[in-house]
Design a protein around this nucleic acid. Sequence first.
DNA 1: CGGGGAATTGAATACGTTCAAAGGCCGTGG
DNA 2: CCACGGCCTTTGAACGTATTCAATTCCCCG
Lengths: 247, 247
Amino acid sequence: MKKKNVSKTKQIAAVKNYVACDNCALDAVCRPIKIGGHTLSLVHNIMGRNEPVAAGEYLYCKGEPIRAIYAVTSGTIKIAQKTDTGREQVLGFRFPGELFGEEAIFPKEYTVNAQAIDEASVCRIPILELEDCAENIPSIQQDLIELISRQCFLMQQQMAAYVARNSAEERLAAFLINMLERNAFHSGSQSEISLAMSRDDIANFLGLRRETLSRSLSKLQKLQVIRVDGKVLEILDSKALRLLAHF
Amino acid sequence: MKKKNVSKTKQIAAVKNYVACDNCALDAVCRPIKIGGHTLSLVHNIMGRNEPVAAGEYLYCKGEPIRAIYAVTSGTIKIAQKTDTGREQVLGFRFPGELFGEEAIFPKEYTVNAQAIDEASVCRIPILELEDCAENIPSIQQDLIELISRQCFLMQQQMAAYVARNSAEERLAAFLINMLERNAFHSGSQSEISLAMSRDDIANFLGLRRETLSRSLSKLQKLQVIRVDGKVLEILDSKALRLLAHF
DNA sequence: CGGGGAATTGAATACGTTCAAAGGCCGTGG
DNA sequence: CCACGGCCTTTGAACGTATTCAATTCCCCG
């Protein structure tokens, strides 16, 4: 079991190409701002573009009043919450081009924590200002509906991917397929995925122990379905993976 | 282990009180229609109110173009899909006052199946007509945003309830708490829940076998946390239940 | 009253967890 | 440049839990 000497985290950090606006979930809201006349003020004045976020930094925490909704432009964001007993519960991850914070629009406050896993960057739209703009410009309301509808759809997809799965292998396979599909949006590769988060975070998310996750990864590798190289995974047989996930 | 002789399904069917509009997820969209002047046409002409649905009947199926979004007014709706291998995958349940079908707004087609478990009734809003109305009446757009935002929030809650849980007991406890919270909205009782769906459907949803679910239910009953009586459950110790679910 | 499907219970097996130990990666310092 | 230490990841063995298959009980409906 030889391993290359190259540092994987450095490899990942090196590939710091921001996701293009065309491939971003926020685009529906940003686009009309970009072409409109007097609306140009929105993008320049109220919106933060490609704001850097340090590894480990929290974008928002549970219980805080909503300030903004975000889109990832580079890096990975972890969505999680702490249980009463102090245990962390990982609820999901957001990748370049994906939206987060929208779950706080209805309750007016954040209901979970959002934390950067690695060095990341985000576009940030303050919600008050956005709602002000939407009142004056009906098309923005349309776009907001589009935006949130899409998020509803994605959440449903997520449920489909992780609910009603029993074995560790099935859950891992479903996770990898989900990663591959979402990865294809922003990264070129159709078969390679970079997982910036720790094994602990993935295991937590899947409701497994880190040891079980590790064993399942090893097993899939032995079956020639994937190739594991630290935080970089290669999908060798996506068809077999779909079978394992029972899709 | 004595059991009462009364038929449980008949008991449930007997309590056929439609959920009030005040407690319905669609209310945000319906209300302005009810008070507006020329908008009265919407509720009378395009919207179906309390339409009966026979047990087993499908409201919509995966792949069909979107026709309408729905709210349950009585009974229970099962959200599910069939995998490539023919296995059914239960993704969730909708109870009186809750919305469903909204996940099809973005992709313009239904991505899952919605089936009535028992005799049910729904309010139905055709999507084309709704969008037409929204174009003319900005407040409806506002309400639509409110509606879908709320649904995003609820989906996140669902994820939190079921993702990142490992043991059978933990998942069952989380399920029961979720049922209790959602039940409190439309039914008076704070401690009793009626589960119209089969044990198979629940087990499928939780990623367990029916036997494991049955055993877990029995165990929680022996621990004096719940009382199981066919499809009717009573929560005896909700605090202990929250501990078991690791909330 | 009796048949059939759903739900529960029992025993053997398979799988995931736990605890322990070893290996690999990376930053620091000699 | 290499050695050291800490942290994350992987592997091993014993144990506990979920699954499987089979049998029984319960419940609904004719």
